[in-house]
Amino acid sequence: MKIFIYSLIIAILGYLLRDLTPWWSIAIIAGIAGALARLSGIRAFFMGFLGAALLWGVYTFFVNMQNEGTLASKIGELFGNMSPIGLILITALLGGFIGGMGALTGQLGRSLFLPPRR
């Protein structure tokens, strides 16, 4: 449960800060969450992954829906005939990976000072 709450917080913060920070700030947000959440490495990664993938995936899903797939289908052609849904998934995975790695970094940083709670 805690993981999901933290993931949601990451997603919400990422959403609120999206226009004020560079695109990769989701890694830092997840990193801070990773440092605060007191999770094991794998769980921290999962938490960051979920939070960032949720934000990037859901956000682009709505963008694409409102755009009726117009631009994503054109960009998808540039990426070797990928469908808009495929592009949303790739975007979510990419965001997720960055978020996960950010969270893991945060978790490891914290573990320098405090042992993780099991």
Binding site: Y59, V63, L71
Partner: peptide, 14 residues
Amino acid sequence: LNPFSGFWNNAEPY
């Protein structure tokens, strides 16, 4: 590819 400043931001809502 990122949703906020990447190409997605050029996908105008209808």
